[in-house]
């Protein structure tokens, strides 16, 4: 569990990068966060912390929880997914307990900076199979591919658990829903690595998360670790694990710049 205290200010720092008026936001955020609880990471980690008092900390860059997400991604066709799930179940921790499932909706909200037309987005996520769980607000930074000596891509991630009126709050701040999708799948854990095997669905009828349509015939697989920056051994650990899944699935560092070209 990451400590609850710095999480809220660090989320605010992430927003501050986008050039919002910080003072105003902070007031609103703290109003909301009276019932804030932490939901550890995305994808149905059902570990929750009892309500804890929010620790007041001055909003400086120094005390921001500076965590990087080390990430490898890949996909596998539906027909072979069962083989992969079995293999993951054997390889990962807690192989004797049933596999943990999740069924989440993720909505991406963006806001435009009037001055330089830059957009900034935040991701709100909620579990559809268990709506009582806290919502999750996430800022995801630009991924860095790095050179060949680095095995994974690396991006800064700031996450915070919120109360259920997160969406209202985002709308009041001026954020607008850009797109949404439903992720359904399995989550595995191996040491500090997290493996998500998920099916991405588009929501055909906005507002009705029952009307789903798979985006592709493949499951998306993400192998990630949340850790402080510059941990070189981590990359090798992740690469070793990814190698164990070959040739069933090729987990690699996908250059996200390629996504926006096509």
């Amino acid at each position: 569990m990451q400590p609850l205290g710095p999480a809220v200010p660090s989320a605010l720092n992430g927003i501050a990068i986008a050039g919002l008026r910080l003072g105003e936001m902070r007031g609103k955020f703290e109003q909301q966060s009276s019932s804030v609880r932490i939901r550890q990471t995305l994808g149905g980690y059902r570990i929750m912390q009892a309500e804890a008092p929010i620790v007041e900390q001055p909003l400086t860059r120094k005390n921001a929880a500076n965590l990087q997400e080390y990430l490898l991604q890949g996909s596998i066709l539906d027909s072979s997914a069962d083989v992969l799930l079995n293999r993951l179940r054997g390889l990962c921790d807690n192989s004797d307990s049933p596999v943990e499932l999740f069924h989440d909706i993720e909505q991406v909200y963006t806001i435009k900076d009037q001055a330089n037309q830059a957009t900034f987005s935040l991701r709100a996520r909620n579990a559809l199979d268990n709506p009582q769980l806290p919502w999750q607000l996430r800022y995801v930074g630009q991924p860095e591919v790095g050179d060949k000596s680095r095995f994974t891509i690396c991006r800064s991630v700031i996450e915070v658990g919120t109360s259920s009126n997160l969406v209202t709050w985002l709308n009041e701040l001026g954020f607008r829903l850009d797109y949404e999708f439903v992720a359904k799948g399995h989550i595995f854990q191996k040491g500090r690595m997290k493996i998500l095997v998920q099916k991405i669905h588009r929501v055909c009828q906005s507002g009705n998360p029952e009307t789903l349509e798979p985006v592709s015939q493949s499951f998306l697989i993400e192998l990630s670790v949340l850790a402080p920056p510059s941990q070189e051994s981590l990359g090798e650990e992740m690469k070793a694990f990814a190698d164990q899944l070959r040739p069933l699935v090729e987990l690699e560092k996908v250059d996200h710049a390629r996504l926006h070209v096509s």
Partner: peptide, 14 residues
């Protein structure tokens, strides 16, 4: 077991 390009499709979606 792998369809090339599907990773890109899925990632550009999310």
């Amino acid at each position: 077991s792998i369809m090339s390009g599907d990773t890109i499709v899925l990632l550009s979606a999310i």
